[in-house]
Design a protein around this nucleic acid. Structure first.
Lengths: 253, 253
DNA sequence: CGGGAGGTTGACAATCGTCAATCAGAGTGG
DNA sequence: CCACTCTGATTGACGATTGTCAACCTCCCG
């Protein structure tokens, strides 16, 4: 793997992310930026963590998109979350011994790997940073709960619409795009793995969303949302579970 | 609601739970036991937290069983987790502002409600307790991920078998019963809400498990597991996601 | 221009849901 | 002690959503 160039502001996305949760003072920020890390360029489809392997690093995404997934006995695969720039994909690896899932890149990603000892040290020395990371974990858990609901109790159309809403809003909140027009970095098979459907059914369902004029596509991956409210309604999407600040929630126009 | 009698050891189950995650010294233990709390007896079906309501307390279960659930637009309900004695059902309420789900009792429960300020104070003053609570949150999240997989990628038979395995093992680990013979405190409708199925299909699926001699029932709620390994195999159940200690994992005979 | 990944479509099958009736057991009042 | 009622379990007939299999298409890239 390539070693991308780094400097003292490489971990800035993490500072941004954690600052959005709690008030951090300059020492807190400095301590985060001073974390030792290994920067890597990881290619599409490659893994940074594999289920059942001992976990030594937590992985911060500096650019690109990644997913966490698990495999079932019959060979099926379930994506349990999608991650974007600034997110610590694997905070749990700092405290739990063995990975319970895999982390795989959807696109080429620049990542920063931080050794678990260093995350723990930071948490012990800077209580507000620890609190921010804890909150991050709690929001993660809230998103997992919503996904259980999504695959457990919603039909295909609602599931896909919900996923489109969540992804686009998170992109916008992270300052990475508009929630009305964006590139979806996933194949239809991956969408299926995220929603508990097959790629064939995803394809049909997206076609229906298009026919119903909830979305428009110029190519299979570029999603245009004409009326965000209507799509949110179709997806039974309510921002509550994302635990956004008032400013952030206002972005769900 | 009744006020059950309490004393200085009422919060002992929480000390036990957190001690199983990290090494706590006597000051840590004393600080947990000294948490101010309100003890309540909550009846079956009653709620302690409701989705969208501001969260003021975290709820510790002292006896009985509870679930967390969410409602979808069509009226369907999804149970996202089941909780037993010693578990902090709502640690996230200490850090997040508004509840993203409801907490409801499956049976009459004795609970201790701890104000969020007190949980936060404890976390700031006792870093190892904070770490234990953080780990607890991380394990919770791991269980949510497994549930996403369960409802997203497993068929009805496997889902039910998985749920039976998880519940019985968690009971045994908590010292509340055997994993080969226990009372399931849920109706078939609730089992359906937990697995993304209907009560009718749950009923049929359980019948199949019985016919296949994976379980035996003397009444609808009492589950006897003849061959734990076979049930675990049928349920695609692997203890990894529970992040148990070696001793605890050994209980999955 | 050939290969490959991913998207699209159709025919058909299977799992699971819906509706509705019946049954079993616990608690209650007379 | 016995009807009565209520909740939850059980079963059957039927329908709908979603999966499976397989073909073909489209675009990108070397």
């Amino acid at each position: 793997m390539t070693q991308p160039t780094t400097d003292s502001s490489t971990l800035k996305p993490l500072v941004e992310k954690l600052s959005s949760r709690v008030q951090l003072d300059s020492k807190d920020r400095a301590a985060i930026l001073a974390l030792p890390f290994i920067a890597k360029l990881v290619e599409r489809h490659h893994y940074v963590v594999r289920e059942y392997e001992p976990a030594e690093y937590s992985c911060l995404i500096l650019s690109g998109y990644a997913v966490r997934s698990k495999i079932v006995a019959t060979g099926g695969r379930q994506i349990v979350s999608i991650h974007i720039k600034g997110e610590m994909v694997d905070l749990q690896n700092s405290l739990l011994k063995k990975a319970d899932h895999s982390v795989q890149m959807l696109t080429q990603c620049k990542v920063a790997l931080v050794r678990r000892e260093n995350v723990l040290k930071l948490a012990m020395e800077r209580p507000m940073v620890a609190r921010a990371m804890w909150i991050d974990t709690l929001v993660d858990a809230s998103i997992f709960r919503e996904w259980i609901v999504n695959v457990g109790r919603r039909d295909a159309r609602t599931r896909i619409a919900h996923l489109l809403c969540e992804f686009s809003l998170r992109l916008k909140v992270a300052g990475l795009g508009e929630n009305t027009r964006y590139e979806l970095p996933m194949t239809q098979e991956q969408l299926g793995d995220a929603t508990g459907l097959t790629s064939v059914h995803v394809n049909r369902t997206i076609k229906v969303l298009e026919q119903d004029q909830l979305i428009e596509r110029f190519n299979p991956r570029s999603i245009h949302v004409g009326d965000w409210r209507k799509l949110a309604e179709a997806g039974d999407f309510d921002t509550n579970y994302l635990h956004l600040s008032e400013d952030e929630a206002a972005l769900a126009s």
